[in-house]
């Protein structure tokens, strides 16, 4: 059985029908990516999964439980973390406080410290900035902080929304190396939303291609890279 099973969800922004029957499966230990152009509904899919918006129709099963009607703060407890688009760093909380927020539901202070150290081992730069306000960090550092904060819950499923957005190529590579490492070494299952399709498909096992609220193609990452349609539309190959 898959870790996350989404069946035929429909989501709306007011009158706008943003998701028109999306079905996605994520298996334990996989990196799955959602690719597609701006406005295809990739972020909306993540927002619907994490409870920030509720689907009008359809079911979302996580670890065997229906979470489609739950609030985001309840869903976090079940072991799913959503690192939102734009990183969502609290600008006037320090790096340390931001990380502590990531472990808000954990009361064991030793565990919090342990996980913070793990985050620092992935991103030593954050340790240097520990008492700095989140808002003063560079874009790359904020993305590191967002991921480290997401790992504070030690999630079974980590959902990342556009981690490469606005970053220099060298940082994009660093971030994707870390994502790969998390998956390889810790077995963290990852659902990755990306506009940078080439990068995403290079580390993912499987992928879904979205277009205007629907899934048009799904296949293994290797096959998607070779798919002519996908190449034309998203990989910049003509």
């Amino acid at each position: 059985m898959s870790l996350l099973h989404i069946e035929n969800i429909h989501s709306y922004y007011g009158q706008i029908h943003a998701l028109k029957g999306i079905s996605v499966d994520v298996n334990e230990g996989e990196i799955v990516t959602l690719i597609g152009s701006n406005g295809a509904g990739k972020s909306t899919t993540l927002r619907t999964i994490s409870g920030m918006m509720h689907p009008k129709k359809g079911t979302i099963i996580f670890e065997g439980k229906d979470i489609s009607k739950k609030e985001p703060h309840e869903i976090v407890h079940s072991g799913m973390v959503h690192v939102p688009e734009g990183r969502g760093i609290f600008p006037t909380l320090t790096v340390k406080e931001n990380l502590e927020m990531g472990a808000f539901t954990i009361t064991d202070s030793r565990l919090v410290e342990e996980r913070m150290e793990y985050g620092f081992s992935l991103f030593p730069r954050l340790k240097e900035r520990i008492d700095q306000f989140g808002g003063t960090l560079s874009g790359g550092e904020q993305q590191m902080l967002a991921i480290a904060r997401g790992l504070m819950m030690n999630p079974h499923l980590l959902m990342l929304d556009e981690p490469s957005m606005g970053l220099a190529p060298i940082l994009v590579e660093l971030i994707f190396d870390i994502i790969k490492e998390l998956n390889d070494n810790r077995g963290t299952t990852i659902l990755l939303v990306e506009q940078n399709a080439l990068m995403a498909l290079s580390i993912a096992h499987r992928g879904y291609v979205m277009q205007t609220g629907e899934i048009t193609v799904t296949d293994t990452a290797a096959n998607l890279r070779d798919n002519e349609e996908v190449q034309k539309a998203y990989l910049g190959v003509s």
Binding site: H73, V76, P84, M101
Partner: peptide, 22 residues
């Protein structure tokens, strides 16, 4: 801890809810 959560909610409500804050 609660005060930190209050500041987090004040700064970014949707993200605060993603942290498990009610």
């Amino acid at each position: 801890r609660v005060g930190k959560a209050m500041r987090a909610v004040a700064q970014d409500r949707p993200t605060a809810s993603l942290m498990g804050i009610n």
